[in-house]
């Protein structure tokens, strides 16, 4: 969000209880939104928000993303939902074909970005919105994220000091394998 604001983008955030279907649909219908990032649970054909309420579903309200670019850090959402959003008119959809995995140790930090074990998966995942906001195409963005994931894997494979390191590397590889896009790869914001 900081990156978006620095680039002059107006940011609308729907945290916690505001991540409900009604608010989500209202914002997309009323505001001139170009990029949507989801950070909720997912299934092949849907993404959920607060208390697992379905906020975006293939064949139901996927037309809300018409003319927009989406990034869903939501499990499996690229499989069916991504394609249906493109069919309904979205310009691009970046997501995961597999469940997003990460290792965490709550004793190291409550927030993923403060937890040394969880941070790699989130930092590499955050490359997607940051790269899009910097003006890269959807295809370039996904490639950049995969390149950074591999660099991170290479680094964690050297961390013989941490018994959890192989698991961190394995999660990074898994998330990188599942990361892809559908729609026009030349799309920019």
């Amino acid at each position: 969000m900081d990156a978006a604001s620095q680039k002059g983008f107006l940011v609308f955030e729907l945290p916690g209880a505001k991540a409900n279907k009604s608010d989500f649909e209202s914002y997309l219908n009323k505001q001139n939104i170009r990029f949507v990032m989801f950070n909720g649970h997912g299934a092949p054909d849907l993404i959920t928000g607060y208390k697992k309420e379905v906020i975006l579903q293939a064949g139901k309200n996927d037309n809300l993303l018409k003319g927009k670019v989406a990034y869903a850090r939501s499990c499996y959402s690229l499989s069916i939902l991504g394609e249906s959003c493109i069919t309904a008119g979205a310009d691009g959809f970046v997501g995961y074909k597999l469940p997003f995995m990460f290792v965490s140790d709550p004793t190291r930090g409550a927030h993923p970005l403060k937890d040394e074990l969880a941070k790699p998966c989130f930092v590499t995942s955050n490359i997607i919105p940051i790269s899009m906001l910097k003006g890269h195409t959807v295809c370039e963005t996904v490639q950049k994220a995969k390149t950074e994931i591999q660099k991170m894997i290479d680094y964690w494979e050297t961390r013989s000091d941490l018994v959890e390191a192989p698991m961190v590397a394995a999660c990074l590889y898994w998330n990188g394998s599942g990361l892809d896009y559908c729609g026009n790869g030349d799309t920019k914001l």
Partner: peptide
Amino acid sequence: MPRTVTLNIGSHGSF
């Protein structure tokens, strides 16, 4: 893996 460490698998939970 130490006992305090968990593997988080999307919407399936933490283990």
